[in-house]
């Protein structure tokens, strides 16, 4: 038995959950899929007094079109999202990225909301949310609020979520006919955390690439936009995108620290490799 001792509460409603969080604040932690938290508990890197299990809350595991968005409930498992025809059709970027998330046994348990709420900078889904310009729905003592992806990720495992709030769903703008998406990552072994990864979304306006959003993972404390490279590529003609110039712009966009897996130089090089691959994917419509 590895974790330190804690009490456990399986909640049945958001109100009950928020009530417990208000009462216990920093001493409580929410567990959803637990595929990151359980490892942290086993390693005693996290030692809450109370674990609040939200898996019993009804209504948080739906996937549905809502206005122009695809809304994915916080408790949707990675494997359910991967098998969902709605995700394949309306959020093709997620469909591209999900097979890269860990392994089947982890995807069967891990949740979409949990991945976003944890905000691991090496995780795929936070970068996808950012690339799509999506948003996060949050329930708290004052009711519901929505936070744009650009404002949600604030630092290493730091998000806009307050200690007494629960992420209830993510919203992704539904793909249209002109939508282009791309995803690529480099990992030493399939399913491992990526050394570097890149999620992208854009529109093909006539023969031009528009509204490009590039979100890198594993190069900073949060998923990060490569805004200079976006500017270089936006408005450019498909078929002759100035990829060399965009790769050069990454020197201004990214400032990764090296780690035991890859040096700073290697990460910068791989970021350029991925931008070339992603640019090639963006040339083609979503299959």
């Amino acid at each position: 038995m590895k974790p330190s001792s804690f009490a456990y509460a399986k909640t049945r409603s958001l109100d009950e959950t928020i009530g417990l969080l208000e009462q216990h604040r920093d001493e409580a932690r929410i567990i959803a899929g637990g595929q990151s938290l359980m490892a942290l508990l086993n390693l005693r890197l996290s030692a809450p007094k109370l674990l609040v299990d939200i898996n019993g809350i009804a209504g948080l595991d739906g996937i549905a079109l809502d206005g122009g968005d695809l809304k994915i409930g916080a408790l949707v498992r990675h494997s359910a999202a991967q098998k969902s025809p709605l995700v394949a059709r309306h959020a093709p970027l997620l469909a591209l990225a999900l097979p890269h998330v860990a392994h089947p046994a982890i995807r069967n348990r891990g949740t979409v909301g949990g991945s976003i709420a944890l905000a691991d900078p090496a995780a795929e889904l936070p970068a996808c949310l950012l690339a799509l310009g999506g948003a996060v729905e949050i329930a708290g003592p004052g009711g519901m609020r929505t936070v744009a992806a650009d404002d949600f990720f604030q630092g290493l495992y730091q998000t806009a979520l307050g200690p007494d709030e629960v992420l209830t769903a993510i919203r992704l703008p539904a793909a249209g006919e002109t939508t282009r998406v791309a995803f690529a990552e480099l990992a030493r072994r399939h399913g491992d955390f990526a050394l570097v990864g890149l999620a992208a979304s854009a529109r093909a306006e006539g023969d031009r690439l528009e509204d490009l959003r590039l979100a890198f993972l594993s190069v900073a404390l949060t998923p990060v936009r490569a805004r200079r490279a976006e500017t270089v590529l936006n408005g450019q003609r498909l078929g002759s995108l100035p990829v060399d110039e965009a790769v050069a712009a990454l020197a201004d966009d990214l400032d990764p620290d090296g780690d035991i897996h890859a040096s700073r130089e290697m990460k910068m090089h791989l970021a350029g490799v991925l931008l070339r691959r992603v640019a090639a994917q963006l040339e083609r419509p979503v299959p």
């Binding site: 399986k10 637990g34 595929q35 359980m38 490892a39 086993n42 046994a105």
Partner: peptide, 28 residues
């Protein structure tokens, strides 16, 4: 015991999961 090796893989409600990344109490 932190979800990497897969030696503890079991089925819960028909799907494989890591036996080290789920609590017994969650399997009530």
């Amino acid at each position: 015991e932190h979800g990497v090796c897969g030696a503890c893989t079991v089925r819960v409600d028909g799907s494989i999961v890591r036996g080290c990344l789920i609590l017994a109490v969650q399997c009530d």
